[in-house]
């Protein structure tokens, strides 16, 4: 009756062998192809370095002005712009400017990459039920897998640094944009699509003139979530050498510096709110045509 109380598990020797097999297989793969993979990501690395250098080398008043202009163009909301400027000034005053700029630059690159990769996948999913039924479970796994687990294979492949951090963040943050692109396109009114067909739209014209514009507000909600998730993951990714606001937080945890953790934590909250409000206001503005309802 012993098997009732102890789960009849695989014996320890075979289990060890299995794990060892997987690990050594992956290591072999890394030794074989690691260099090529690293080279393939070289352009991304250049982009990251360029964006970080831009944020750090530009005089801070210009950066504040630039961010204020971007938030204004996106949101057309004075309160959001003023809140943004005050937040940035406070961050600078408490000597977190450099870390914050690195984090913003990282989020920027991650978001661009997620959009560039995620939207085409979302479009492809919306066109094929089969693809959707394959991709959806993968996205589920990506979203529920503890984020630390991503770091392991990425570090094994590419070592410690910016690019592996970027990849880990993108893998973690990309599901919402894929899901909501797919959803937004599938929700487009059938009557409107029929009209587009009746006038002889090609499938590209259909996508460009009808599906994308009508799905855009939903896609914006996805981009907003992606940004928020990227921001959360950037802190975790500091464990593998992504620089920015995450590193002081990590340091604070290791050394029990409460105030250091608190300040940097608040700075992260601050830029999270800026990103969130701005992208949401932009999403709302995209739906302007729906607001002015007749009668």
């Amino acid at each position: 009756m012993e098997w009732l109380y102890n789960f009849p598990s695989m014996d320890i020797e075979s289990l060890r062998a299995l794990k060892k097999g997987i690990d050594s297989g992956f290591r072999g793969f890394t030794r074989e192809y690691g260099v090529y993979i690293e080279n393939a990501f070289e352009p991304l690395k250049q982009f990251l370095i360029w964006s970080e250098r831009f944020m750090l080398d530009t005089p801070w008043p210009l950066i504040i002005l630039l961010i204020a202009v971007i938030t204004w163009v996106a949101s057309r909301n004075k309160r959001i712009v003023i809140g943004t400027v005050i937040t940035l000034l406070l961050i600078g005053y408490f000597d977190m400017w450099e870390d914050t700029m690195q984090t913003i630059s990282m989020i920027f690159v991650c978001t661009v990459l997620s959009i560039v990769v995620g939207i085409p996948i979302g479009i492809a999913m919306s066109r094929s039920d089969r693809l959707q039924s394959v991709v959806n479970p993968i996205l589920d796994v990506m979203q529920t897998m503890p984020s630390f687990v991503y770091l392991i294979p990425v570090v094994m492949l590419l070592g410690i640094g910016k690019v592996p951090g970027l990849i880990a963040v993108v893998i973690y943050a990309i599901p919402p944009i894929i899901r909501l692109t797919n959803l937004g396109i599938r929700l487009v009114d059938k009557d409107v699509l029929e009209a587009a067909d009746a006038f002889g739209s090609s499938s590209w014209q259909r996508l460009k003139n009808v599906q994308m514009p009508l799905a855009l507000p939903t896609m914006m909600a996805g981009i907003n979530q992606t940004i928020m998730m990227a921001l959360a993951m950037v802190v975790v990714a500091s464990m593998i050498g992504v620089r920015g606001l995450g590193q002081p937080v990590l340091q604070a945890i290791n050394n029990q510096y409460f105030s250091l953790g608190l300040f940097n934590g608040l700075a992260i909250v601050g830029i999270a709110i800026i990103f969130d409000r701005t992208s949401q206001a932009y999403g709302k503005r995209l739906q302007k045509y729906q607001e002015v309802v007749h009668g």
Partner: peptide, 15 residues
Amino acid sequence: HETAMVFQKFALLPH
């Protein structure tokens, strides 16, 4: 080039 259609439910492009 050969047809044009008016729809019962209008089916205008809302955006």
